[in-house]
């Protein structure tokens, strides 16, 4: 007999939750692989969609920024400025959307098999990262085309990438857990993604907000509470360096919100996950 020992009792939290999660990483990979495999089955142009979708968003955002005359720093083409924000935003949007719906989409698994439930949102994030890799390629091509080489700040890019994932996970876990009980949240997700695009510096940049004296301080603070503000400002900083300096108070507010949401999201998810199979 092995030394594998499990004690089940009401509300008992597994002491090995996080190591359990690690043991199930194989399943995590398989579920992400499934979603990727399934996504382009029975499509005629298949993986090309991974290129077309970010390109369309990029063009739309570029057009909006141009239309409203959003500020562009000296020497940075507008298309690059927008691309540097579209990519992390799309990562956030798809990871958030996937994570938020992951429980309901896999309810057949939740009611029939045991595994740490967090595997499901994690696997959708993994899928989004694959899309992100394609989008980053587009960004690289655009930068080469405009002969814009980033400075040493580029080394910070992975940090902001991780931050984008954490922002998506924090909010996504929260909504995923709520979604199990209240399906109302299914309708909130597309709204957040759609609305978020306009209050996040994608078509414009944060300096348009922080540097605009006609915007009241309160609105600036609310604007900075969006966890994606720090991510996108960070992305632009790592790509364009000193041309786009970070507005520190805004950045720190946004970062704090990101961490706060993550902690709350993980805690709420873990507190409720044992009941998922009962009510899903």
């Amino acid at each position: 007999m092995s030394h594998h020992r499990i004690v089940i009792s009401p509300g008992a939290r597994s002491k090995h939750y996080w190591s359990d999660l690690w043991r199930y990483r194989g399943l995590l990979g398989f579920l992400a692989w499934r979603d990727v495999m399934v996504r382009y089955k029975q499509t005629s142009i298949g993986v090309l969609w991974a290129v077309i979708r970010p390109l369309l968003t990029l063009s739309a955002m570029w057009f909006i920024g141009w239309l409203f005359g959003a500020g562009v720093p000296e020497g940075v083409p507008r298309i690059l400025l927008v691309a540097a924000a579209t990519m992390p935003w799309q990562l956030f949007a798809s990871a958030f959307d996937g994570a938020a719906n992951s429980m309901i989409a896999n309810s057949n698994l939740v009611t029939k098999v045991y595994f740490p439930r967090m595997i499901l949102p994690f696997s959708t994030v993994l899928v989004s990262l694959i899309d992100m890799a394609v989008a980053l390629l587009i960004l690289v091509v655009l930068m080469l085309f405009h002969a814009h080489l980033p400075g040493p700040e580029i080394l910070l890019l992975p940090v902001f990438l991780v931050q984008a994932i954490l922002a998506a996970l924090g909010t996504g876990l929260f909504i995923a857990a709520l979604n199990v009980k209240y399906r109302d949240f299914r309708y909130i997700v597309p709204f957040v993604v759609q609305f978020g695009l306009y209050i996040t510096p994608v078509a414009f940049s944060s300096s348009d907000v922080f540097g605009n004296p006609s915007i009241p301080e309160v609105l600036k603070f609310i604007y900075a509470c969006n966890p994606m503000v720090a991510v996108i400002d960070g992305f632009r900083f790592s790509l364009f360096g000193g041309d786009l300096p970070i507005h520190w108070p805004g950045f720190l507010t946004s970062l704090t919100m990101c961490v706060l949401l993550l902690v709350l999201g993980v805690r709420y998810f873990r507190r409720t996950e044992k009941g998922f199979a009962d009510i899903i």
Binding site: I6, V7, I8, S9, K112, K274, D278
Partner: peptide, 26 residues
């Protein structure tokens, strides 16, 4: 199988457990 949480009581399991509650889950 640890899919649902009991309301009361306690179970101790000494071994690796796999369950097949439905054919073709997933």
């Amino acid at each position: 199988s640890r899919i649902v949480d009991p309301t009361e009581g306690r179970v101790e399991i000494n071994g690796r457990l796999a369950s097949l509650l439905e054919v073709g889950t997933g």
